[in-house]
Nucleic acid binder design. Structure first.
Length: 244
DNA sequence: ACGCTTGTGTATCCTCTCTG
DNA sequence: CAGAGAGGATACACAAGCGT
């Protein structure tokens, strides 16, 4: 059918919409686990779910997803099938972390408490339990410093897809610096907006917009202090270039 | 001209991590 | 367990914009 998926992003949820039908029957049939789809009628939606790591592959079924989510007290996705020709799925939660699903799939021995804490980490909610934080860090499940923990990418390294979580954790400042220097070598000068645009999507998802601003500001400061760049414009309208 | 607001870089603070 | 290092957070000064 129509291969276009419309993704609408809200602060607290993600709505995926796709023209076409679901599988045979309705989602509830599969949630119960009594029915197994022979084929997916809506491969586009399935692919999107796979990319969001709600399901690992085509083979990771709806029932398992629901059972797993429910068993761990995670918010469950909602389907809206009121329009016969449109499938609409709502994923609750601010963040969908690709590392998270892989972690659950690989680490089958996680306790409920561990999973709940990891869920809070992925949603960037504070984890108050000091002992749990220490425990998770020791198990190499989380990294980062309070309050900006993030799920450890090393767990996922055991599987094959390395590119997925490149964006999940922050890159080193040397990498950001290189990006800026490459940009300046190419275009000779850059405004703050240029640098923001250049780095924004590269920054860790653990940072909100305000923190990203600060992060970039600090990076610029750092580069200026070490004599890499200098500002030939005003403070209001900075014009950054490579320092001599 | 004036005051207010906003956005920027700079300096300093503060908290956490790491290492031994 | 302590001290140093790292780096995000915070406070501040300044420049520009904008309305009156």
């Amino acid at each position: 059918r129509n291969g276009r998926i419309i993704v609408t992003e809200y602060p607290d949820r993600l709505v995926l919409e796709n023209e076409g039908q679901f599988f045979e029957g309705v989602p509830a049939d599969y949630i119960s686990g009594h029915k197994t789809p022979r084929r997916y009628r809506n491969p586009f939606l399935v692919q999107a779910m796979a990319e969001l790591s709600m399901i690992d592959t085509m083979g990771y079924g709806i029932h398992e997803m629901y059972a797993g989510q429910r068993r761990r007290f995670f918010p469950l996705p909602d389907y809206d099938l009121s329009d016969a020709d449109v499938v609409q799925m709502t994923i609750h939660g601010k963040i969908v972390d690709a590392v998270f699903s892989r972690m659950l799939i690989q680490k089958t021995d996680l306790s409920l408490e561990e999973v709940l804490a990891l869920d809070r980490v992925q949603k960037h909610l504070p984890v108050d339990d000091e002992a749990m934080i220490k425990h998770l860090r020791r198990r190499k499940l989380i990294e980062g410093r309070k309050p900006n923990f993030y799920l450890s990418a090393k767990v996922a390294l055991a599987s094959d897809a390395k590119a997925d979580y490149i964006h999940t954790r922050g890159q080193d400042d040397v990498f950001y610096t290189k990006l800026v220097m490459d940009y300046l070598n190419k275009y000779h000068s850059a405004t703050r907006q240029d640098i923001n645009k250049l780095l924004w999507r590269m920054l860790s998802d653990a940072l909100d917009d305000e923190q990203k601003e600060t992060k970039i500001g600090n990076l610029i400061t750092s580069m200026r202090r070490t004599g890499k760049i200098k500002n030939s414009g005003s403070r209001r309208a900075p014009n950054w270039g490579i320092a001599e």
